[in-house]
Simulated scan of single mutants.
Amino acid sequence: MTEQTPQPSAFTLFDLHSHTTASDGYLTPEQLVLRAVEMRVGVLAITDHDTTDGLAAAARAIELQQLPLILIDGVEISTLWEHHEIHIVGLRVDKSHPALTSLLAQQTEFRHQRAEEIARRLEKAHIAGALEGARRLADGGALTRGHFARFLVQAGVADNMAQVFKNFLAKGKTGYVPAQWCTIEQAIDVIHQSGGQAVLAHPGRYDLSAKWLKRLMIWFKAQGGDAMEVAQCQQAPNERSQLAKYAADYQLLGSQGSDFHQPCSWIELGRKLWLPGGVEPVWRDWILPARSQ
Rank of each mutant, 00 (worst) to 15 (best):
N167K: 13
G156H: 04
H147F: 03
H126T: 03
R121L: 08
R120A: 00
R121V: 00
Y176E: 06
S194L: 07
V164P: 05
D207F: 14
K171F: 04
V164H: 05
L152P: 01
H147L: 06
S194V: 08
G140L: 12
R205T: 15
T174L: 14
G133I: 00
D207T: 11
I127D: 02
V199D: 11
F168L: 15
A128C: 04
G172P: 05
A142N: 09
A187H: 08
L143M: 08
K173M: 14
I184R: 08
G129L: 01
F165V: 04
G140R: 11
A170M: 07
R136M: 11
T174R: 12
L122K: 04
I188D: 09
A142W: 02
N160A: 12
R145Q: 08
K124Q: 11
E185Y: 05
G146A: 12
T144G: 13
A179E: 14
L169D: 03
E123R: 03
V190Y: 13
L122A: 07
V199C: 13
L137N: 00
A187P: 07
P203D: 12
Q186C: 08
G141R: 04
L208M: 10
I127T: 01
I188G: 09
H147M: 08
R120F: 00
R121Q: 15
R205K: 14
A149V: 03
H202E: 13
A179T: 13
G196A: 08
G156M: 04
P203N: 11
S194P: 09
V177R: 08
T183M: 09
E132D: 15
A125R: 14
V199G: 09
S194G: 09
A187F: 07
A179H: 13
A134W: 00
L143P: 05
I127L: 00
I184L: 15
P203M: 09
H202V: 12
G133W: 00
F165D: 02
D139A: 15
N160I: 10
G196P: 04
G141Y: 02
Q154K: 07
F165P: 01
T174H: 05
I188Q: 10
A149T: 05
L200F: 08
Q180W: 06
V153G: 05
T174N: 05
R135T: 02
A198P: 13
V153Q: 06
V177W: 06
K171Y: 07
K171A: 13
G140E: 12
K124N: 03
R135A: 03
A138Q: 06
Y206D: 10
N160S: 13
G196Y: 07
A149C: 06
V164G: 06
F151L: 02
N167I: 01
L137V: 01
P178G: 11
I184A: 08
G133P: 00
I191E: 09
G196H: 07
T144L: 12
L152A: 05
R205I: 13
G172W: 03
A130D: 03
P203S: 10
R205A: 14
I127N: 00
R120S: 00
G140P: 13
V164T: 08
Q154E: 14
R205H: 14
I191R: 11
H192T: 11
Y206R: 12
A138E: 06
A138C: 07
F168D: 02
G129S: 02
G172I: 05
R150K: 15
A142D: 06
T174P: 01
F168W: 15
G129N: 03
K171D: 12
V190E: 13
A125K: 14
H126Q: 14
G129I: 00
T144V: 09
